[in-house]
Design a protein around this nucleic acid. Structure first.
Lengths: 282, 282
DNA sequence: CGACTGTCATCTGTCAACAGTTTGCGGCCG
DNA sequence: CGGCCGCAAACTGTTGACAGATGACAGTCG
């Protein structure tokens, strides 16, 4: 394809249309507010979380730019942002790769989410309104119905709503953003399906326990119930993932210090250039 | 020079040899490893945290580029990264500003750090080695000496070491990074001096309590002690900052939902362009 | 004397081009 | 026949240049 750098206007229009689809309120208005870089970043993040860009995959700037109908500049800026967010890792003169989250990191993220959920539950136990409690109860009830009907997708969706409501009422905006970012990182685990796997009965029983403690105004119990719930998810996650190194015995030296925080630049699958291969082939 | 792309093989070997030899210090070698964008980002972050770029200050891309001796491209990429990190906020066609952290956000960050510290303490209570315990004890002892000598700077530095050691032994790399980022954000509070203000006696007593619980292997008590310590810092912070809205009475509706997560683009002080004024005037 | 509008300089957003490096493939020598 | 060298291509890193927008000053009208 030779349209690499010819008509950028058409491509941009395409991007605008794609971006406008998901947002009913205004059309070209968002373009006046958001810069191309941010739109590209949003789109890349969506692609990564949706799996269109798989974990470990290499990001070709030129290809992405052409695909989105923009120049390489905005793409580079967006990738830099995503790098800071921890969604991609970059190696100089080599390229950027969608980050791969190891099992250890996934478990660590579970711990963080547990702490945050516990924090929100404790806050909620101290200052929850009857309306908020009612909303949470309704969500638990909906999950129970989904569980009875064995409707896993519905349960999963409502579960997300429940946790979102928990954070919305019991935590500030910064905490919510952090929780969301951690959730996104969890999606980069090599087998993301594990993240969504849940034992509905066990899980919802824990939800109910959290709610009871919150309603009782027992901050300490609520915090613990929240932490336990996420720890349960972590346990179910670990039980499913056979390759996870169970820390079982070695309690002495918890060698957290080893290794890089982000996964190394291992090229993984996928070749880079086609060498001197025929470039005109269509 | 016409040798642009002639002997890449020999040049490569030579460069590799040079790279292998000149490992210890840092020369122009870092430039070969890190990209300009990352270096600029690092420098900007340093400037922001050091106060060279004050909170609310506007970032002029051209000025920064000239000052750092690079083009605007790397600067823009770096700023995008810092924007994702939450250190700056950007408004389209208007510029980027060093983020201003409100009192509410600062308090929220304190809560998050408390949860993280509690997590690390609990982990440590379950799996701390005698060597780690000894190191922590030594730090507490050093702080006590600094307190007796009323050497606030020394106390502050050792306090940082103590918390760093806590995280290094009791948490994973992701947790440590998060803790550091939250600390950086705290530095963006309008009166950053408050963050560093500590009641040395009270603070170190809490350190000792944390250590006791960890040594006793009581994870729950250790977690609580860690949380209490940061909560104490939060309390001291709030007591000093008179403008903080004490949530005292209104327990009913905790309206966390209001407002943007990041401070608005308020232009704050500092004019932008000089208009059509005489530019040559000295 | 106050409010409004026109004009302009500065800055950001974006694009296109240049330079350097890494990498794969083909050929050559041992 | 295997390993090494050299070439070539693609890709990233960086720079410079161009358009659009923003904000402010200055003149003018009510």
């Amino acid at each position: 394809m030779e349209e690499t750098r010819t008509r950028s206007g058409a491509g941009r229009a395409a991007l605008r249309a794609a971006a406008a689809e998901a947002v009913p309120p205004s059309a070209l208005e968002i373009v006046r507010t958001r810069s191309l870089s941010s739109l590209v970043a949003q789109e890349l993040e969506r692609m990564i979380l949706a799996g269109t860009l798989a974990a470990g995959e290499r990001l070709n700037e030129q290809s992405l730019a052409t695909r989105l109908g923009v120049s390489r500049g905005p793409v580079r800026e967006a990738v830099r942002g995503l790098e800071r967010s921890g969604l991609v890792v970059a190696v100089r003169n080599q390229g950027s790769y969608v980050r791969q989250v190891s099992a250890e990191e996934a478990l660590e993220i579970y711990d963080l989410r547990a702490a945050i959920t516990g924090l929100a539950c404790a806050r909620l136990a101290e200052a929850a309104t009857p309306a908020q409690l009612g909303a949470l109860r309704a969500l638990v009830k909906r999950m129970d119905e989904a569980r009875r009907a064995e409707d896993a997708p519905a349960y999963y969706a409502t579960n997300l709503d429940f946790h979102a409501a928990l954070l919305a009422h019991g935590a500030g905006p910064r905490t919510r953003r952090l929780y969301e970012e951690l959730g996104n990182e969890l999606h980069l685990f090599r087998r993301r399906a594990l993240v969504e796997a849940e034992n509905m009965r066990e899980s919802n029983a824990e939800h109910a326990a959290m709610l009871r403690a919150i309603a009782a105004g027992d901050a300490e119990a609520a915090r613990k119930a929240g932490e336990t719930h996420i720890a349960g998810g972590k346990r179910r996650f670990r039980a499913t993932d056979i390759t996870t190194p169970q820390p079982a015995a070695s309690k002495g030296e918890n060698g957290h210090d080893a290794g890089d925080p982000s996964s190394p630049p291992r090229p993984v699958a996928g070749r880079r250039g086609a060498g001197r291969g025929p470039r005109g082939a269509a």
